[in-house]
């Protein structure tokens, strides 16, 4: 831990609805860096899908972000981009939200796992 304190840790970023962002920022994950770039995006009904997509891609490119938290209902809007991201870091974690409970069948890592457990492949 002492060693950790000396090295600046990597960030956890959030893309979510108002309550998710307010909550996680209260929890201490938020940051605005020297270039005035925040590591969070509040998505409301007026936010365009392209804006979410751009923000997600920007977070993927930032090397100071290790984990991206995204509400599952928002992840559904940019599913093609999330499915294209196959690198382990930054880890993209789909989290539930107030209006949308967690659905394991939509989770990208579990869908990838289900593809691996295809019985026809295993018998060969």
């Amino acid at each position: 831990m002492a060693l950790h304190s000396a090295i600046k840790g990597k960030l956890i970023s959030v893309i979510g609805d108002e309550d998710t962002c307010v909550g996680f920022l209260l929890g201490g994950v938020g940051e605005i860096n020297k270039n005035r770039h925040p590591n969070f995006l509040v998505v409301d009904k007026n936010t365009a899908v392209s804006e979410i997509e751009d923000c997600f891609k920007r977070f993927l490119k930032r090397d100071d972000i290790d984990i991206i938290l995204i509400n599952q209902n928002i992840a559904e809007l940019i599913r093609h981009v999330i499915d294209n991201h196959t690198q382990p870091i930054p880890a993209v974690l789909e989290i539930p939200s107030k209006d949308h409970p967690y659905d394991a069948s939509k989770d990208s890592i579990l869908r990838r796992a289900r593809g691996m457990f295809n019985p026809e492949d295993l018998v060969r």
Partner: peptide, 11 residues
């Protein structure tokens, strides 16, 4: 204004 994250991760 700039502010730091309180929760960070070390891989």
């Amino acid at each position: 204004a700039e502010f730091p994250a309180i929760a960070t991760v070390h891989s």
